[in-house]
Design a protein around this nucleic acid. Sequence first.
DNA 1: GCGACAG
DNA 2: ATCTTGTCGC
Length: 226
Amino acid sequence: MKPKRECPWSLTPQEAVKLQEEWRWEVKVEDGPRPEDLRLVAGCDVSFSQARGMLYAAVVVLKVPGFEVAEESTACLPATFPYIPGLLAFREIPALLSALEKIKSTPDLILCDGQGIAHPRGMGIASHLGVLFDLPTIGVAKTCLVGKWEAPGPERGSFSYLRYRGRVVGTVLRTRAGVKPVFVSPGHRVSVDLARELTLYLTPRYRLPEPLRLAHLLSYRFNRQG
DNA sequence: GCGACAG
DNA sequence: ATCTTGTCGC
Protein backbone atom coordinates (compact mmCIF):
# COMPACT_ATOMS: atom_id res chain seq x y z
CA MET A 1 0.00 0.00 0.00
CA LYS A 2 1.01 3.56 -0.56
CA PRO A 3 -0.26 6.61 1.32
CA LYS A 4 -2.55 8.86 -0.68
CA ARG A 5 -0.83 11.91 0.73
CA GLU A 6 2.43 12.91 2.34
CA CYS A 7 3.07 13.90 5.92
CA PRO A 8 6.20 15.45 7.43
CA TRP A 9 7.50 13.38 10.36
CA SER A 10 10.52 15.29 11.57
CA LEU A 11 8.54 17.72 13.65
CA THR A 12 8.78 19.24 17.08
CA PRO A 13 5.88 18.48 19.44
CA GLN A 14 4.60 22.02 18.91
CA GLU A 15 4.63 21.58 15.13
CA ALA A 16 2.94 18.20 15.49
CA VAL A 17 0.08 19.77 17.44
CA LYS A 18 -0.29 22.39 14.72
CA LEU A 19 -0.46 19.69 12.04
CA GLN A 20 -3.17 17.87 13.96
CA GLU A 21 -5.20 21.06 14.18
CA GLU A 22 -5.01 21.37 10.39
CA TRP A 23 -5.64 17.72 9.55
CA ARG A 24 -8.59 17.31 11.88
CA TRP A 25 -10.81 18.92 9.23
CA GLU A 26 -9.95 16.12 6.79
CA VAL A 27 -11.43 13.43 9.04
CA LYS A 28 -14.81 12.14 7.86
CA VAL A 29 -17.11 10.55 10.42
CA GLU A 30 -19.81 8.98 8.24
CA ASP A 31 -21.36 5.71 7.09
CA GLY A 32 -18.86 3.11 5.97
CA PRO A 33 -18.64 -0.57 5.09
CA ARG A 34 -21.14 -2.93 6.73
CA PRO A 35 -19.74 -6.06 8.39
CA GLU A 36 -21.11 -8.21 5.53
CA ASP A 37 -19.29 -5.99 3.00
CA LEU A 38 -15.86 -6.66 4.50
CA ARG A 39 -13.44 -8.90 2.62
CA LEU A 40 -10.02 -7.83 3.94
CA VAL A 41 -9.31 -6.20 7.31
CA ALA A 42 -5.90 -5.04 8.52
CA GLY A 43 -4.70 -4.75 12.11
CA CYS A 44 -1.75 -2.52 13.10
CA ASP A 45 0.35 -2.57 16.25
CA VAL A 46 3.76 -1.40 17.43
CA SER A 47 5.94 -2.66 20.28
CA PHE A 48 8.98 -0.98 21.76
CA SER A 49 12.36 -2.18 23.03
CA GLN A 50 13.70 0.07 25.74
CA ALA A 51 17.12 -1.61 25.53
CA ARG A 52 17.50 -1.10 21.76
CA GLY A 53 15.48 2.09 21.46
CA MET A 54 13.66 0.48 18.56
CA LEU A 55 10.05 0.31 17.42
CA TYR A 56 8.68 -2.93 15.95
CA ALA A 57 5.64 -2.46 13.73
CA ALA A 58 3.41 -5.28 12.57
CA VAL A 59 0.51 -5.43 10.12
CA VAL A 60 -1.76 -8.46 9.74
CA VAL A 61 -4.37 -8.62 6.99
CA LEU A 62 -7.20 -11.10 7.56
CA LYS A 63 -9.84 -12.45 5.20
CA VAL A 64 -13.39 -11.96 6.45
CA PRO A 65 -15.37 -13.95 7.39
CA GLY A 66 -13.15 -16.78 8.55
CA PHE A 67 -10.20 -14.74 9.82
CA GLU A 68 -7.63 -16.52 7.69
CA VAL A 69 -4.32 -14.64 7.36
CA ALA A 70 -4.04 -13.06 3.90
CA GLU A 71 -0.83 -11.08 4.44
CA GLU A 72 1.64 -10.17 7.19
CA SER A 73 4.41 -7.63 7.35
CA THR A 74 6.82 -6.12 9.87
CA ALA A 75 9.23 -3.20 10.06
CA CYS A 76 11.81 -2.08 12.57
CA LEU A 77 12.80 1.57 13.01
CA PRO A 78 14.67 3.54 15.68
CA ALA A 79 12.38 5.45 18.02
CA THR A 80 12.93 9.16 17.47
CA PHE A 81 9.84 11.08 18.55
CA PRO A 82 9.11 10.56 22.29
CA TYR A 83 5.86 9.22 23.67
CA ILE A 84 3.64 12.18 24.47
CA PRO A 85 -0.05 11.61 25.23
CA GLY A 86 -1.94 13.06 22.25
CA LEU A 87 1.03 12.72 19.89
CA LEU A 88 1.34 8.93 19.68
CA ALA A 89 0.93 9.02 15.89
CA PHE A 90 4.20 10.90 15.45
CA ARG A 91 6.05 8.21 17.38
CA GLU A 92 4.50 5.11 15.82
CA ILE A 93 3.25 5.90 12.31
CA PRO A 94 6.66 6.09 10.59
CA ALA A 95 7.31 2.46 11.59
CA LEU A 96 3.78 1.48 10.61
CA LEU A 97 4.17 3.10 7.19
CA SER A 98 7.28 0.98 6.53
CA ALA A 99 5.29 -2.15 7.33
CA LEU A 100 2.20 -1.06 5.37
CA GLU A 101 4.32 -0.31 2.27
CA LYS A 102 5.06 -4.03 2.01
CA ILE A 103 1.37 -4.98 1.98
CA LYS A 104 0.22 -5.71 -1.58
CA SER A 105 -3.55 -5.78 -1.13
CA THR A 106 -5.77 -2.89 -0.11
CA PRO A 107 -7.88 -3.72 2.96
CA ASP A 108 -11.50 -2.55 3.27
CA LEU A 109 -10.82 -1.45 6.84
CA ILE A 110 -7.84 -0.81 9.11
CA LEU A 111 -7.91 -1.31 12.89
CA CYS A 112 -5.39 0.59 15.00
CA ASP A 113 -4.16 0.14 18.56
CA GLY A 114 -5.13 3.51 20.08
CA GLN A 115 -7.74 6.23 19.65
CA GLY A 116 -9.46 7.68 16.62
CA ILE A 117 -11.40 10.91 17.14
CA ALA A 118 -11.53 10.33 20.91
CA HIS A 119 -8.55 12.65 21.21
CA PRO A 120 -7.83 16.20 22.45
CA ARG A 121 -7.77 17.48 18.84
CA GLY A 122 -9.87 14.75 17.22
CA MET A 123 -6.77 13.26 15.56
CA GLY A 124 -5.74 10.03 17.25
CA ILE A 125 -3.47 7.56 15.47
CA ALA A 126 -6.41 5.84 13.74
CA SER A 127 -7.66 9.11 12.26
CA HIS A 128 -4.15 10.03 11.21
CA LEU A 129 -3.71 6.73 9.38
CA GLY A 130 -7.19 7.02 7.85
CA VAL A 131 -6.47 10.45 6.36
CA LEU A 132 -3.06 9.29 5.10
CA PHE A 133 -4.55 6.39 3.11
CA ASP A 134 -8.10 7.71 2.75
CA LEU A 135 -9.42 4.34 3.97
CA PRO A 136 -11.94 3.47 6.68
CA THR A 137 -10.14 3.14 10.03
CA ILE A 138 -11.16 2.45 13.63
CA GLY A 139 -9.25 3.13 16.83
CA VAL A 140 -9.47 0.41 19.50
CA ALA A 141 -7.72 1.36 22.74
CA LYS A 142 -7.32 -0.58 25.97
CA THR A 143 -7.61 2.54 28.15
CA CYS A 144 -9.24 5.96 27.95
CA LEU A 145 -7.40 9.08 26.76
CA VAL A 146 -10.14 11.73 26.99
CA GLY A 147 -13.85 11.89 27.75
CA LYS A 148 -16.40 10.73 30.29
CA TRP A 149 -18.13 7.36 30.35
CA GLU A 150 -20.06 4.88 32.46
CA ALA A 151 -19.29 1.21 32.80
CA PRO A 152 -21.16 -0.88 30.20
CA GLY A 153 -23.22 -3.94 31.15
CA PRO A 154 -21.44 -7.22 31.87
CA GLU A 155 -22.41 -9.16 28.76
CA ARG A 156 -20.63 -9.18 25.41
CA GLY A 157 -21.89 -6.41 23.15
CA SER A 158 -22.94 -4.07 25.96
CA PHE A 159 -21.67 -0.54 25.52
CA SER A 160 -21.90 3.03 26.72
CA TYR A 161 -21.10 6.25 24.91
CA LEU A 162 -17.85 8.14 25.41
CA ARG A 163 -18.49 11.90 25.56
CA TYR A 164 -15.94 14.66 25.24
CA ARG A 165 -16.67 18.39 25.20
CA GLY A 166 -20.38 17.74 24.70
CA ARG A 167 -19.84 15.36 21.78
CA VAL A 168 -20.15 11.59 21.47
CA VAL A 169 -16.69 10.59 20.24
CA GLY A 170 -16.80 6.83 20.71
CA THR A 171 -18.06 3.88 22.74
CA VAL A 172 -16.87 1.81 25.67
CA LEU A 173 -17.52 -1.70 24.40
CA ARG A 174 -17.62 -5.01 26.24
CA THR A 175 -16.19 -7.41 23.68
CA ARG A 176 -16.18 -10.35 26.07
CA ALA A 177 -17.97 -11.14 29.33
CA GLY A 178 -15.83 -10.83 32.42
CA VAL A 179 -13.06 -8.67 30.94
CA LYS A 180 -12.40 -4.94 30.84
CA PRO A 181 -14.12 -3.10 27.98
CA VAL A 182 -12.25 -1.47 25.09
CA PHE A 183 -12.50 2.13 23.89
CA VAL A 184 -13.71 2.28 20.29
CA SER A 185 -13.72 5.47 18.24
CA PRO A 186 -14.01 6.24 14.53
CA GLY A 187 -10.72 6.88 12.82
CA HIS A 188 -11.94 7.89 9.36
CA ARG A 189 -14.93 7.13 7.10
CA VAL A 190 -16.96 5.27 9.73
CA SER A 191 -19.54 6.48 12.28
CA VAL A 192 -19.48 5.98 16.06
CA ASP A 193 -22.07 3.20 15.99
CA LEU A 194 -20.71 1.53 12.88
CA ALA A 195 -17.22 1.48 14.43
CA ARG A 196 -18.69 -0.34 17.42
CA GLU A 197 -20.61 -2.85 15.26
CA LEU A 198 -17.57 -3.59 13.10
CA THR A 199 -15.33 -3.99 16.15
CA LEU A 200 -17.72 -6.45 17.80
CA TYR A 201 -18.05 -8.36 14.54
CA LEU A 202 -14.27 -8.67 14.33
CA THR A 203 -13.96 -9.85 17.96
CA PRO A 204 -15.29 -13.43 17.99
CA ARG A 205 -13.45 -14.76 21.03
CA TYR A 206 -10.93 -12.63 22.85
CA ARG A 207 -10.91 -9.12 24.29
CA LEU A 208 -9.28 -7.54 21.24
CA PRO A 209 -10.43 -7.74 17.62
CA GLU A 210 -8.71 -10.61 15.81
CA PRO A 211 -6.66 -8.40 13.43
CA LEU A 212 -5.31 -6.38 16.35
CA ARG A 213 -4.70 -9.40 18.53
CA LEU A 214 -2.63 -11.08 15.82
CA ALA A 215 -0.77 -7.87 14.98
CA HIS A 216 0.08 -7.50 18.65
CA LEU A 217 1.45 -11.05 18.83
CA LEU A 218 3.47 -10.52 15.66
CA SER A 219 5.05 -7.24 16.78
CA TYR A 220 5.88 -8.72 20.17
CA ARG A 221 7.55 -11.80 18.67
CA PHE A 222 9.42 -9.56 16.21
CA ASN A 223 10.59 -7.44 19.11
CA ARG A 224 11.81 -10.49 20.98
CA GLN A 225 13.62 -11.52 17.79
CA GLY A 226 11.64 -14.78 17.50
C1' DG B 1 -2.01 26.09 39.96
C1' DC B 2 -3.64 20.98 39.92
C1' DG B 3 -4.72 16.71 37.95
C1' DA B 4 -5.09 13.68 33.70
C1' DC B 5 -2.55 11.53 30.34
C1' DA B 6 -3.60 6.12 23.90
C1' DG B 7 1.26 3.34 23.47
C1' DA C 1 5.02 0.38 25.53
C1' DT C 2 8.88 -2.09 28.51
C1' DC C 3 11.29 -4.28 32.85
C1' DT C 4 9.75 -9.79 34.28
C1' DT C 5 7.85 -15.87 36.54
C1' DG C 6 4.99 -18.13 38.21
C1' DT C 7 0.43 -18.93 39.35
C1' DC C 8 -4.61 -19.13 39.80
C1' DG C 9 -8.82 -20.27 37.18
C1' DC C 10 -12.14 -21.32 33.35
